[in-house]
């Protein structure tokens, strides 16, 4: 019964906090829509009720033919409706465009969805499950992906939602404006425990966030984990200098242009490194045979992030041997 009482209280209190940079502009638009639509509904209801009473069968009200030509009425309400609709379209699109543009200097956090938990990886290598600690007033870039099915990362208090799609990495962002604990849900149906794939964003002041970082320890960072994984998956077997099967060295590749088989040059950015693991024969480095098998079904998304981080950590080491 207490939960019941609390939920009624929550209703009265306005259970939806407004806690991000975009939420006030969202709320203004929502309110405008609500007022407009509410006016239309109530207006129509009143008009219909008046007609129903006044023009009921057998009522004495006179029913002379209409004097305004119908086409005038039709054009009026077609134009009016279209204009009102265009205003809301433009307003919504403007905010949406702002939501899509990640501000510079945003702090990057990678979020991996998997059945049925949220796995957050901070830039410094810290990992969290079902919780996400962020500092207040700091734009956060979320890079969403999934290891299995489509999930959707939703934080109602931030008016934030984006699907995490397997095989893709999609960026979205938010900037929390009030410290607090806000629920995360999975909004895209993802299987048995879809409704339990929840968590909390914990927004803290800069000092408390620093304290949390210290408390949580450093953990091993992504690159270190990636080095271990590269041994486990046997990457090192081919991609190091002294092996029988010749394959490009991993040192000094990341962030540089790589000549590939068909004479083109591609930039070894994150996407390239990732594709080279999953779809190795798509862009075979010039001078090497297309012998690497696909790791698409082998390496889960989380490990992939670590492997890419590891390869990137080798960027400054000795450059790859020129292709023979």
């Amino acid at each position: 019964m207490s939960a019941f009482g609390a939920s009624i209280y929550a209703l009265i209190d306005g259970a939806l906090p407004s806690a991000s940079r975009v939420s006030p502009s969202f709320d203004a638009l929502f309110l405008a829509l609500l007022l407009t639509c509410g006016t239309v509904v109530i207006g129509l209801a009143v008009v219909i009720l008046i007609f129903l009473v006044r023009y009921r069968a057998g009522s004495p009200a006179p029913r002379p033919p209409l004097r305004i030509p119908p086409w005038k009425l039709e054009t009026t309400w077609i134009t009016a409706t279209t204009l009102v609709f265009l205003v809301f379209f433009g307003w919504g699109a403007a905010i949406y465009a702002r939501m899509a543009e990640v501000p510079d200097g945003a702090m990057m956090i990678e979020i991996v969805g998997r059945q049925w938990m949220w796995d957050a990886r901070h830039g410094d290598g810290r990992r969290e499950f079902a919780e996400l600690h962020v500092p207040v007033n700091q734009p956060i870039r979320l890079r969403l992906t999934s290891e299995d099915v489509i999930h959707s990362f939703a934080v109602p208090a931030f008016r934030l939602k984006n699907d995490a799609v397997p095989g893709k990495r999609v960026d979205t962002w938010f900037e929390a404006t009030k410290p607090g604990r806000y629920p995360i849900y999975c909004d895209q149906y993802c299987g048995t425990k879809h409704s339990e794939m929840n968590g909390f964003v914990v927004v803290e002041t800069a000092e408390r966030f620093a304290a949390w970082q210290a408390r949580a320890g450093t953990g091993s960072d992504a690159a270190t984990r990636g080095r271990a994984l590269s041994v486990r998956y046997g990457c090192a077997g081919c991609h190091s200098g002294d092996t029988v099967v010749r394959a490009p060295r991993l040192e000094g590749i990341a962030g540089r242009p790589v000549p590939i088989e068909n004479g083109q040059i591609v930039m070894a950015d994150d996407a390239y490194l990732r594709d080279s693991i999953l779809l190795p024969n798509q862009h075979v480095a010039a001078g090497y045979a297309a012998v690497m098998p696909s790791y698409a079904c082998v390496v889960p998304e989380g490990d992939l992030l670590d492997l890419v981080a590891y390869i990137k950590s080798l960027a400054q080491e000795q450059p790859a041997r020129p292709a023979p």
């Binding site: 975009v22 502009s25 969202f26 638009l29 929502f30 829509l33 639509c37 239309v40 509904v41 129509l44 209801a45 219909i48 129903l52 609709f85 809301f88 379209f89 307003w91 919504g92 699109a93 403007a94 905010i95 949406y96 939501m99 959707s152 939703a154 109602p156 008016r159 934030l160 939602k161 984006n162 909004d187 895209q188």
Partner: peptide, 28 residues
């Protein structure tokens, strides 16, 4: 008459979902 009332509400709430920014919050 029931149709008229309910369809109007249903249609107008559709506008919320057609509005890009609002749909982000309300979707699913």
């Amino acid at each position: 008459l029931g149709f008229l009332a309910l369809f109007t509400i249903g249609g107008l709430t559709g506008l919320f979902l057609a509005t890009l920014a609002v749909d982000v919050h309300l979707h699913d």
